[in-house]
Design a protein around this nucleic acid. Structure first.
Lengths: 185, 185
DNA sequence: CACGAAAGTTATTGATCAATCACAACCTTT
DNA sequence: AAAGGTTGTGATTGATCAATAACTTTCGTG
């Protein structure tokens, strides 16, 4: 039951990801997070300065986790092979709808925060996303267009998952990985 | 000042789109919507049964507006020409960040609603999105893969806009419409 | 063992918010 | 002009929630 503050912080982040994925920033109570962790609600504010900080940690964790999945799936591969391996890995990852939803909650929260004058949230979200993009681009061989297309299909998958289309719905049928292009460099 | 209930409902939907785009469902108060419309907060509940109904009307309006833009841009065109016209039109549309954000708020709200057992929200969102997809597919000539790719790039654009990357940021450079594929039918 | 630090709790507060109710102003039609 | 429907407001309420403060329990260590 008892844990070090650092361990506890990690379980808070994991629990927060699940709750924020469901309800978004405003729709999630610190009470709900605390309940999932198994600690009292006020204790969260010993581990983090405020709710916003918990959300930011969850965002960071979410993006890092995504990269870890890509990295592991494409270890040692490059070019088309790497892309296909990462694509497949992503389809497995998003079986867990919460992972996708946390990503999307992160995206929408940037505009909300910026509307209220808090520009730092967006700054760090852009940085995290750019880092993911660059890592993927590097892994697929450095081509900007290929990386962009990879991300584009990823974002479409996110949308389909968010909307809750079952994976055997016809809307998914255009995503079968195939002979899409014939360009060099 | 005084309007028919129907006219008023329309201005509520427009105002709601702006506010919900910023704050999401939970982060937007009916007070804020009412203030933007210029009526008292309780009056909203004469025009709509509850907050959820306002949100759903805003979602519906958002998707319909998107299609109207595509339709107008590609009127009389087909195939690649239609696709390019719609692509360009979308880049103009999303200059207005609110339009994009409302779309994304709609996507994330489905999972939130379904987590609370309200499956109808998702049902109608999926239907609206599918309708948009089918109309686009028809317009570009009926090819599922091409329509899928078009939507994929659209979803990437949404993400970039949500995150607030300025359009001259290097991350956008992979989106220049170009010679992407050489497939027939 | 005792004592100090670290982990954790209970109680509370001030704010915010969706929704209801009772009431007022306004227009139209006869 | 007065009746009656429609548009609209002010006051209020019960619930929810982030955050603070004051207190307790548990563990490692000299």
């Amino acid at each position: 039951m008892r844990m070090s503050a650092e361990e506890r912080r990690e379980s808070v982040v994991r629990a927060a990801m699940v709750e924020f994925a469901r309800g978004g920033y405003r729709g999630t109570s610190t009470e709900a997070i605390a309940r999932r962790v198994g600690v009292s609600q006020p204790y969260l504010f010993r581990l983090f300065p405020n709710k916003q900080a918990i959300f930011e940690a969850a965002c960071e964790h979410c993006i890092e986790e995504t990269w870890r999945v890509f990295d592991k799936a494409s270890e040692g591969l490059s070019g088309t092979e790497a892309r296909e391996a990462m694509g497949e890995a992503y389809l497995n990852l998003v079986e867990d709808r919460e992972q996708v939803m946390m990503q999307m909650q992160m995206y929408v929260s940037v505009f909300a925060a910026e509307s209220l004058g808090e520009m730092e949230v967006g700054e760090s979200a852009r940085a995290a996303w750019l880092r993911l993009f660059e890592r993927i681009r590097e892994r697929v061989g450095g081509d900007q267009k290929e990386a962009t297309q990879f991300m584009a299909f990823g974002m479409l998958i996110n949308t389909l998952v968010a909307l809750g289309y079952p994976t055997d719905h016809q809307i998914w049928s255009g995503l079968e990985h195939g002979d899409d292009e014939a360009e060099g460099s």
